[in-house]
C-alpha cells in the first residue's frame, strides 16, 4: 500500500515536472539543497513506518523545517563566502544512508525468515 502510493507519487511528479515551467538559474542552488532535504525526509518517513512510530506532525515539520533550514544555511553561506551547504549535504546524505541501512536490514530479515519458514514446511512435509 505505502509503496504503491510512493510509486504513484513519483510517476505523477516526474510527468508534471517534465512539463512544468523552469525556475531561474539564480534559485537553482536553493532548490537543489531543498531536494536533498526532502529526500532525507522521505527516507526517514519510510524508516519510521517500518519501526511503527510514524508521527504525521513530526514528519511534516521535519520535511518543511529541514528544507527551509537548509535553504537559509545556503543563503547565509553565500553571504559569508563559506560553503555551509556542504555541511547540510553531509548530514542529510549520512542520515539517508543510515535510514537506508535500517530499511534494508528489515527487509533482508523478513525475507530470510520467510525462506526459513518455507524450508521448514517443505522438510516437514517430506518427513
Amino acid at each position: 500500500m505505502i509503496f504503491i502510493a510512493i510509486l504513484i507519487g513519483c510517476v505523477v511528479g516526474a510527468l508534471i515536472g517534465m512539463n512544468a515551467p523552469m525556475i531561474s538559474y539564480t534559485y537553482s542552488s536553493y532548490l537543489a539543497i531543498a531536494i536533498i532535504a526532502a529526500l532525507d525526509s522521505v527516507f526517514g518517513g519510510i524508516n519510521s513506518v517500518i519501526n511503527k512510530n510514524f508521527d504525521l506532525k513530526i514528519f511534516l515539520t521535519g520535511f518543511f523545517g529541514n528544507a527551509i533550514l537548509a535553504i537559509l544555511l545556503t543563503i547565509l553561506g553565500q553571504k559569508l563566502n563559506v560553503d555551509i551547504y556542504l555541511a547540510a549535504i553531509v548530514v542529510f546524505v549520512g542520515r539517508m544512508f543510515l535510514n537506508l541501512a535500517i530499511i534494508r536490514r528489515y527487509y533482508v530479515d523478513k525475507w530470510s525468515n520467510m525462506l526459513k519458514k518455507d524450508n521448514k514446511e517443505t522438510s516437514e512435509t517430506e518427513d
Binding site: 507519487g9 516526474a14 515536472g17 512544468a20 532548490l31 531536494i35 518517513g45
Partner: peptide, 15 residues
C-alpha cells in the same frame, strides 16, 4: 508519503 514523493520528483525534474 505519496504527496511527499510527488513534491520530491517534481523538484528533481524541474531542477
Amino acid at each position: 508519503l505519496g504527496i511527499m514523493c510527488f513534491a520530491l520528483t517534481f523538484g528533481i525534474c524541474v531542477q
